[in-house]
């Protein structure tokens, strides 16, 4: 068995090949980074964040996108599905007991019949 090679029965995968790949990619990244200019003047406008020509707000909150806005398009497209899912997650304990009872009945029917 080759070191680090996982045989799945349908193919194989080698972890060390991936590590070598990542090491090469990291070396390239560091090379490109080192090729950048280092003669800029620190503390001047040259190393300031460009914020559409406006002054950068002091607190990050003012320029951060809140997490609740992430994947807005995805959740909006699936809103009917989400509506259904959220309606099932009521937070009411008796509902949860109901799901357990109904699921048990279904499983019993499938196994017994």
């Amino acid at each position: 068995m080759m070191l680090g090679t996982v045989q799945s029965g349908f193919g194989y995968w080698n972890v060390y090949a991936w590590i070598i790949f990542f090491a090469l990619a990291a070396a390239l990244v560091f090379y490109f980074r080192s090729a950048g200019r280092s003669d800029y003047k620190a503390g001047t406008y040259q190393d300031e964040i460009f914020y559409g020509g406006n002054p950068v707000p002091k607190d990050g909150d003012e320029i951060a996108v809140p997490a609740s806005s992430a994947y807005w398009g995805f959740t909006e497209a699936l809103s009917p599905f989400y509506k259904l899912l959220l309606s099932l997650h009521t937070g009411i304990a008796s509902d949860y007991v109901g799901y357990l009872v109904v699921t048990t009945a279904l499983i019993s029917a499938l196994i017994v019949l």
Binding site: L100, I107, I111, V112
Partner: peptide, 16 residues
């Protein structure tokens, strides 16, 4: 039948 009922109870309870 009893074994099947017992199995259904195990599966549902442990899945929960």
């Amino acid at each position: 039948l009893p074994e099947k009922v017992a199995l259904a109870l195990f599966v549902a309870a442990l899945a929960m």
